Simulated assay, not measured.
Amino acid sequence: MTSRQPIRIGLIGANIHQGWSPRAHLPALAAHPDFDLAAVCTTRQESADEARAAFNAGAAYDDYNKMLADGNLDAATISLRVPRHYDPTMAALKAGKHVFTEWPLGRTTAEAIEMADEARKQGVKTAVGLQARANPAVAHLRKLIADGYVGRVMTCHVRLMREGVMTRDSGRTWQREDESGAHTLTIACGHTIDALMSVVGEFADVSTVVSTQATTWHETDTGNDLPVTSPDNILVSGNLQSGGVASVQIGNTAWAGSGYRMEIYGDEGTLVAVSVDSPQLKEVNIRGARGGNDLQDLVPSEELILAPEMPANEAYNVGQLYSKFAASIRGTSNGEDAVPDFDHAVGLHRFIDAIRQSSNEGRRIATA
């Protein structure tokens, strides 16, 4: 494979009527110059054929094992509900494919470790769907911090408040169970805190509260009220390995949320990033100030936009992450700009375990 040849990829979980794929992965792959959407797979041939026609894919399958048996396929994406990640991901790895699996990688940390170990055994490249790291604005913040824009990071805070947790249709109420591995702690908090750490560095320790405030969800299409065990509000505070301090608040609220805000204060400057939602989903606006000046707008340089061809919706940052995945497969990625892989995912799973442990035990937990 040369750098000029597109990477032939198959997508498992390609139903165009629901889920994350039709909003992000399918349009991103259809538009990405580094990839050829060679195959799509769902559990029914009819829906697979629909996806093939809608996104000009090469082939359609109703069995991912049949798709993975295609020797001309270089890579596979798994975009399914979190409890269903493990089996197709392991099958793709054992078939010798490079693999992109959505975040969270596994329902549990143990599942994530197994997948990362198998990828290492097979010698293939991997990516996990933590696309906030590839958001050009987040990449710009990372570069500004590395270049000393704020000097020494002294304190930072991130807040994400979303609306609508108390009512959901039956296609989404499966997330009410903590054991599913797909809820505010793993998804909203996982994405948001990973973006923060990509900018200011890792935590050395955490003291946390993990709470379920909405103990019942109303299922809109059936009228049922269902018990909830998954967390919906998370508070994290701690020391950064760099010496600064950080706090994070993530919540799903009953009504209008206030969106996303990251603030970073150093001994030489300030950076503020805002968005209507988490940076893995939406555009982020940055303002900065140095040396006593007022905050002013800061715009990412064009070199940080890795895939300008992407549609301006939820596919945009996913497309940027696919550029990092392509670079990893071709051996052209570098250092801080490398794709978050399965080993990175295991680290984030373990960090989230530490957040839960701190809350359960009511004490500060070392994470470094």
Rank of each mutant, 00 (worst) to 15 (best):
T173F: 14
R176D: 11
E177V: 09
E179N: 04
G181I: 13
A182V: 06
H183L: 00
T186P: 02
T186I: 05
I187S: 10
I187Q: 13
C189N: 15
H191I: 15
H191W: 10
H191A: 14
I193K: 07
I193G: 03
A195T: 10
L196N: 10
S198N: 10
V200F: 00
G201S: 02
E202S: 08
E202N: 11
E202H: 03
D205R: 05
T208I: 01
A214H: 09
A214R: 12
T215D: 03
T216C: 04
D221F: 12
T222D: 01
G223M: 06
N224V: 13
D225E: 00
L226Q: 13
S230K: 03
P231A: 15
N233P: 01
S237Q: 14
N239Y: 01
N239E: 07
G243V: 00
G243D: 02
A246Q: 03
V248S: 11
A254E: 06
A254H: 08
A256S: 10
A256K: 12
G257S: 07
Y265L: 08
G266R: 05
G266D: 02
E268Y: 09
G269E: 04
G269F: 07
T270V: 03
T270Q: 07
L271I: 10
A273I: 05
V276F: 08
D277N: 15
D277S: 14
Q280W: 04
K282V: 11
K282M: 14
E283A: 14
V284E: 02
N285C: 15
R287N: 00
G288R: 12
A289S: 15
A289P: 13
A289W: 13
R290E: 12
R290L: 06
N293R: 08
D294Y: 08
Q296E: 11
D297Y: 09
